[in-house]
Amino acid sequence: MGQATEIQENVVERLRQEILAMQGLRVPLENELRDTGLGIINNAFPNQTFPVAATHEFISDNAQNGAASSGFMAALLRILMCKGSCLWVSTRCRIFPPALKAFGISPDQMIFIDARTSKDALWIIEEGLKCQTLAAVVGEVQELGFTESRRLQLAVETSRVTGLIHRYGSLPTNVTCVSRWRITPVASIGEPTIPGVGFPGWNVELLKIRNGKPGRWQVAWNPDGFKVVQQPKVIEHLPARKTG
């Protein structure tokens, strides 16, 4: 009896993997398995691993949230960028490169590209995602349509480069990105007795994750990596939406 259940579970597990593969979410290769240091947030992802060969969408509606998203993306890039360089494509570049050092990234490994229009930016992001030697591509755009996001998804499926798309100031639309994050700033978390500004902190909302469990966490950043300081809260009011 117990054996039969086990076999059934194996079959279910195998089928699940097949479905994920069909949806463009392959099982991570052995050499791609690296812990982004997100701790319990990893449980929200399919296969309990941050999807590397995928595009992630970050949305922000004002400058503060935009800056917080940039910071969180930089923190994510720390692990990804051991592989190589990273492109930071933007139509309004405000990043102050020396600040990246605080997130463990060597700013000279980052190549910044200023695009004049969103169209140019998307072209560059797509070309960047096709380039296998890059570790990741960060794209800051205002608009991202379904077609464009589909093109980006197809690019990462072959090249297995990570894409982080930051959309600022526009309403969320249907896109094929594997996840949607909203990062908002929280006051720095530190010992109240120690003077000075502490380490950055974020309110991390994983609004959408394909085949995963969305949630909400409070995350702090210290020089060693992420530190999840608050237990996850499952986001309950999710619009029923088909995956994929």
Binding site: P107, D120, I124
Partner: peptide
Amino acid sequence: ELSNLLDRIAGKVGSAAIRRY
């Protein structure tokens, strides 16, 4: 490969748009 990519980008948006610090 990276240089080739940057060359293509420079051809599209101009080499002044690519910056490394």
